[in-house]
Design a protein around this nucleic acid. Structure first.
Length: 452
RNA sequence: GGAAAGAUGGCGGAGUGGUCGAUCGCGGCGGUCUUGAAAACCGUUGACCUUAACGGGUCCGGGGGUUCGAAUCCCUCUCUUUCCGCCA
C-alpha cells in the first residue's frame, strides 16, 4: 500500500512538514523488502524442517529406528540456519515498526497547505452580529467538504470580532468577585494549573458536564465511564505514544499514564477487536478529567482557565467504515456546533492546515469561542478523522456484511466539549450588572438563570 | 500484603510430546422442511504474514529454554479468579 501510493504519501507528509518525507518513505520500503526476503528464506527453511520432523514421526511409528536417526542427523545445520533467519526477520520487523511509529498520518487532500495557526482556514462562523466580510461564512459550509471556501486566519478581519458594549472583566477576576474558582488554593494543594471550583463555580462545572452528556445522549451517543489511568499499550494505540510521551503524567512504579483525554481509554476499548459491520458506526461519549503536563507553556496562554493541568472534558468517539467516516465526521461537527449555539457563544470553525494538525489526524476542525474580555479566540474543541491511522495501531477492524471479510476501520473523535475555556467565555461574555447570565439551555442544569 | 488455582478459536469447554489450528457444545452463516417463523435435520464457520496463483509460514496469555518435533515438559514475566488480611 505504501509502495503504491508513494508519491501521494510523500506529498501528504510534506504538507504536514514532516522532515525528509521522501527519504523516510524510501527507507521504509527498503526495510519492508528486506523483511519480506528474510521471511521467504525463513519460511522455506521452516517448511523443510517441518517435512523432516513429520517423516521422523512416521518412521518412528513404523519402527524404522535407524532411518529416523539418519534423518535426525540432517537437522542440526538446518536448525542453526532457521535460528539465524528468524533473528534477521525479527530485526527487520522491529526496524519497520520503529520507522512506522515515527511517521505521522497523511492529511486528506482538502487540508490546506500551511505551517502554523495563521494558515488555518475559517470555514464557518456564528453566534454574533458581524458585518459583510463574514456573511458568506455565516451562511455555512454545512458540508465542510468544499475546498477554498473560507478565510485563512492571516486574512481574518479582526474588526469583525464580536465587539463588547462595555469593558469586560477577565474570568480570573470574575472568579474572585463571585467566589467561583480559587486558583491559589489549587496551588497550595497541588500546583499551578489545578484550580479549585467552589460553590456556584463548582455547580457550573457540574451543570456543563450534565448538559453536554445529555446532549450527546440525545444525539445517540452511548455514555461510557472509563478509567482515567491507562497502560502503555493504550498510549500507543491512539498515538499519544511515542509522539507525546512528555505531555502525559506517568506513574512510574506501575508504568501507567494519566489520560490526556477520554479519547485514549474510549478508543482503546476497541483495540484488538473485530466489529460486525451491523454495529457500526459506534458512537460513544464520555466525561472524564483530563491530565496534561503542558511542559513549555507560558504567559497569557496559561492565565486563569486558559490552560490547565487537569480539566473536565466530554469527548465523543466514533468507529466507522471507511466509506461512512466522512459523513460521521460531519455529524460530529454539527453536534459540536449545536452545543455552541445552545450556549449562545460566538464561535468560528477552522479547518486546520497541514502544519497545525496533530501527528495522528487526517482531517481536523477546531472550534473556537470568542472571549470578550481577553479579546481573543479560545480553542474549545478539535474534531478529527484519523482514517485508518489509529485503527492500524489498535488492530481495530470490522467484518463487512457482504463478503464477511475483515477490514481496518476508521476512528474519529472530538471534544463536545472541554469545560475550562467554555467557562471562561461564558463568564466573560455574559457578565452584566446583576451578575453573570446563564444561557437558557443551561439553566435547567444549573438551577438558576444567573450567577450573583 | 499472604496462599492457591488458572490463562486454548466470538463465547463455553476438551486436549499432557508426533497430520492438533486444535474434539465437542453454543452462537453465526448457508440449506432442507414450513404459507411464514420456530423446532428438527444437513452443511459451513479463526486471525495474521507471504505468494500473481498453487502453495508456504506464524499464532493455544507474553518472553526464553529442552526436543528431530511442544497447546502439551522446564524457566520467567504479566494478567485473571478464589480464599485470607486490610480497606473506600
Amino acid at each position: 500500500m505504501l509502495t503504491l501510493n508513494k508519491q501521494a504519501i510523500v506529498a501528504g507528509l510534506e504538507k504536514k512538514h514532516f522532515n525528509d518525507a521522501h527519504d523516510t518513505i524510501e527507507s521504509v520500503i527498503a526495510i519492508d523488502q528486506a523483511r519480506k526476503a528474510a521471511q521467504q528464506k525463513k519460511d522455506a527453511a521452516s517448511a523443510e524442517m517441518n517435512q523432516i520432523s513429520k517423516s521422523i514421526g512416521a518412521l518412528m511409528a513404523q519402527g524404522k529406528r535407524e532411518e529416523a536417526e539418519a534423518a535426525k542427523a540432517k537437522t542440526g545445520e538446518l536448525k542453526e540456519n532457521i535460528k539465524a533467519l528468524e533473528a534477521e526477520m525479527a530485526a527487520e520487523e522491529e526496524k519497520l515498526t520503529q520507522a512506522l511509529l515515527q511517521i505521522p498520518n497523511v492529511p486528506y487532500s482538502i487540508v490546506p497547505e500551511g505551517k502554523g495557526a495563521e494558515d488555518n482556514v475559517a470555514v464557518k462562523v456564528g453566534g454574533w452580529n458581524f458585518g459583510e466580510p463574514l456573511k458568506k461564512l455565516a451562511e455555512g459550509n454545512r458540508s465542510f467538504d468544499a475546498d477554498g471556501n473560507g478565510i485563512a486566519l492571516r486574512d481574518w478581519p479582526a474588526s469583525e470580532d464580536p465587539q463588547p458594549a462595555f469593558a469586560k472583566l477577565p474570568h480570573w477576576e470574575l472568579a474572585k468577585k463571585y467566589n467561583l474558582i480559587d486558583f491559589d488554593l489549587g496551588v497550595k494543594i497541588s500546583g499551578a494549573g489545578f484550580p479549585v471550583y467552589i460553590g456556584q463555580g463548582a455547580r457550573l462545572q457540574r451543570a456543563l458536564i450534565n448538559f453536554f452528556l445529555a446532549e450527546a445522549n440525545k444525539a445517540g451517543y452511548t455514555e461510557i465511564m472509563p478509567p482515567t489511568v491507562v497502560n502503555q499499550a493504550s498510549g500507543y494505540g491512539t498515538g499519544q505514544l511515542p509522539d507525546k510521551e512528555g505531555q502525559m503524567y506517568h506513574c512510574e512504579v506501575d508504568d501507567l499514564y494519566l489520560i490526556p483525554t477520554a479519547e485514549v481509554p474510549v478508543t482503546n476499548l476497541y483495540r484488538d477487536e473485530i466489529i460486525d459491520e451491523a454495529n457500526l458506526p459506534i458512537k460513544n461519549c464520555a466525561y472524564t478529567e483530563c491530565f496534561r503536563r503542558e511542559a513549555g507553556s507560558y504567559g497569557k496562554d496559561v492565565r486563569g482557565l486558559n490552560r490547565l493541568h487537569e480539566f473536565s472534558k466530554i469527548e465523543i468517539v466514533r468507529i466507522d467504515t471507511p466509506d461512512h467516516s466522512d459523513a460521521s465526521h460531519r455529524e460530529m461537527l454539527a453536534h459540536v456546533e449545536g452545543l455552541l449555539q445552545k450556549l449562545e457563544l460566538p464561535y468560528r470553525i477552522l479547518r486546520l492546515c497541514g502544519g497545525d494538525m496533530s501527528f495522528t489526524a487526517a482531517l481536523c476542525y477546531d472550534f473556537e469561542v470568542y472571549s470578550e474580555a481577553q479579546h481573543r479566540w479560545l480553542e474549545v474543541s478539535s474534531t478529527s478523522n484519523f482514517d485508518t491511522y489509529q485503527a492500524n495501531r489498535l488492530k481495530c477492524r470490522y467484518r463487512k456484511a457482504d463478503d464477511k471479510k475483515v477490514y481496518i476501520a476508521h476512528t474519529l473523535n472530538g471534544s463536545a466539549l472541554a469545560l475550562p475555556r467554555i467557562v471562561a467565555a461564558l463568564l466573560e461574555n455574559n457578565q452584566c450588572e446583576e451578575g453573570i447570565r446563564i444561557p437558557k439551555a443551561l439553566q435547567p442544569f444549573f438551577g438558576d438563570d444567573m450567577i450573583r
